[in-house]
Amino acid sequence: MTNTATSTPELFEPVALGPLTLPHRLVMAPLTRNRATPEGVPTPLMATYYAQRASAALIIAEASTPNPVGQTYPNITAIHSPAQVEGWRLVTDAVRAEGGRMFLQIQHGGRVGHPDTSGLTPVAPSPIALPETIHTPAGRRPSVVPREMTAEDIRTTVADFAAAARNARDAGFEGVEVHSANGHLLHQFLAQGTNRRTDAYGGPVANRIRFVVEVAEAVAAEIGAERVGLRISPRVTVNSLHEGDTEEIYPALVAALAERGLAYLHVTYADPEDPVFRRIRQDWPGTLVANPVLPKDHIPRDGGLAHGERLLAAGADVIALGRPFLANPDLIRRMRTGAPVNQVRDAYLMYVGGAKGYTDYPALPAGV
C-alpha cells in the first residue's frame, strides 16, 4: 500500500501516530547519552534533559536493554528491574508536565557488549565477534566472541522484550520502539555477515527475519500493536554489520509486519533516492518515520528542516532528528522562527556523563 496523500504534508501539521495525535511532525530520535547509573537506572539529570526537549512532537527515549546480557556500554539505561522502571517514571512525569509525549526504544546489543561491562558473555545469532574494540568501564577492549543463542535463548529473549514493553508502559511511556537497526541483536539476525545459522532462524531471508517478527509480535501482544514502532536501518554498516541482500530483506520484513497494525516503521539514515526506501514507502501501509542523513561535522543552519521536507516529499509521514535536538532544547521554536541553531560543542561530551554538554545547551531568550 502506498502513501496516498495528494500533496506533501507540512512539517508543522498534526499527524496521527498510533494512539497519539502529534502536534507536528518532528520527533526526537533516540540518542544514547550514557547518563544512567552503572545499574542502568535513569537519573534526575536525565529527567531535566528530556523535559527541556518536550516540545518535540514525540520523544523516542534512548535505547534501554530488556535484560542484563543485552547491555552494550557502561551507564546506558535498562528497563528490566523495578528500580529502572521507577527511574524512567521520573523522566516521563517530567516530560508530561511540560506537555510532551514519550516512547521508549528497547535495544539488545547482541555481540555489541562485553563481560567487563555486563558481567556476562554476549549472545548473538552466531559466534562471530565484533571486529573492533568496544568501550568498557576500563576503557576500550578487544571484543569477545559471543555465545551462539540456543532455541531457548531466543524464546527467552522474545519474552524479555515483551516484559520490557510492559515495564515501559508501567513507567509512563505511551509506547515503545523495537530496535532492529545499527548492528544490534535484531539487525544481526537479519544480516548474512552475522547470521550463519542453519536452523529456522538462519539461511533464507524468510528465516532471518523470523526473530524480528517474533519480537515485534510479542511486544504488540503485550501492550497493543498501536503502541509499538520498529526501527530499521537498510544498508547501514554501523558496528561492522553487513546485510548482504538488503533488497530482499526489507520487502520481506515489511510484508510480514504490514498487517500487524504497528504504530510506525522508523527508517534510519533515510535517503529519499534509495530504491529500498522507496520500496518500503510503497509497501508499508502505516505511518513511516524517517531519520535523515545530516552532515557529520555540523548541524544545518535550519536544524535539518530542508532534509525533513525532502523526506516528506518522498512519502515519509514523520521526521526524526537526533543531534539537532541534542544541541537545541528549543529546536522546534528555532525552526518555526528561523533562528540560528546551536552546534554540538564537543562530541566527546556526548557520552561522558554529567551536565556539561547535556543540559547546559542554551535556549533562546524569552521574547526572541
Rank of each mutant, 00 (worst) to 15 (best):
V145G: 09
A164I: 02
I60T: 14
V238F: 09
P251Y: 12
V254S: 08
R33C: 07
R35N: 08
H24N: 01
L22K: 07
E214P: 08
G203R: 01
R33L: 06
A313R: 14
T157V: 14
T72V: 12
R35P: 05
P42M: 11
R231S: 03
G338N: 07
V254F: 08
L312S: 03
R147F: 01
L262T: 00
M1E: 11
V69W: 02
A163D: 06
T43R: 04
V219H: 03
T150P: 01
A138I: 11
P146M: 03
P204T: 11
P146C: 05
R166L: 12
Q52W: 11
T65F: 06
R279C: 10
G18N: 11
V368I: 14
Q192H: 00
S7P: 02
P66R: 07
G87K: 01
R278S: 14
I299M: 07
H298C: 08
E10F: 12
R196M: 00
A313F: 11
A263E: 09
Q188G: 06
V112F: 04
R279L: 13
E132D: 12
N328Q: 10
A29M: 08
Y49C: 08
G87M: 02
D160E: 15
R169Q: 12
D317L: 07
G203A: 04
A159Q: 15
A256D: 02
V145P: 06
E13L: 00
D271N: 14
V69T: 13
A339S: 12
E177V: 05
A270P: 03
A206S: 15
A218P: 04
Q107F: 10
R33V: 00
V228G: 06
V267F: 14
F189L: 03
E98M: 09
A168Q: 04
A168S: 13
H266G: 06
L17D: 11
R53T: 15
G109P: 09
P292D: 10
I319V: 12
I319W: 05
S180D: 08
V368P: 01
G338T: 04
A313K: 13
A181H: 09
T157F: 02
L190W: 07
E214L: 08
Q105T: 11
D93E: 13
A78C: 08
L364S: 12
G202S: 10
I319G: 03
A83C: 03
A313Q: 14
I319K: 06
R336G: 10
A221H: 07
E39C: 04
Y351H: 11
G354P: 10
A181P: 06
A56M: 00
E152W: 05
G99A: 00
V212I: 05
L22M: 10
T32C: 13
A366G: 15
T136W: 06
V344R: 02
P14W: 14
G172H: 09
L294N: 07
R260N: 03
N342Q: 09
G109W: 08
F173N: 07
E177S: 13
A165K: 06
R140Y: 13
H298G: 04
L104T: 05
V27Y: 03
T21Y: 04
V69H: 02
A159F: 09
L26C: 06
A168V: 08
A200Q: 14
M102W: 06
N291V: 12
V112D: 03
G308T: 01
A218E: 00
M102E: 09
A218F: 02
D302K: 01
L331F: 05
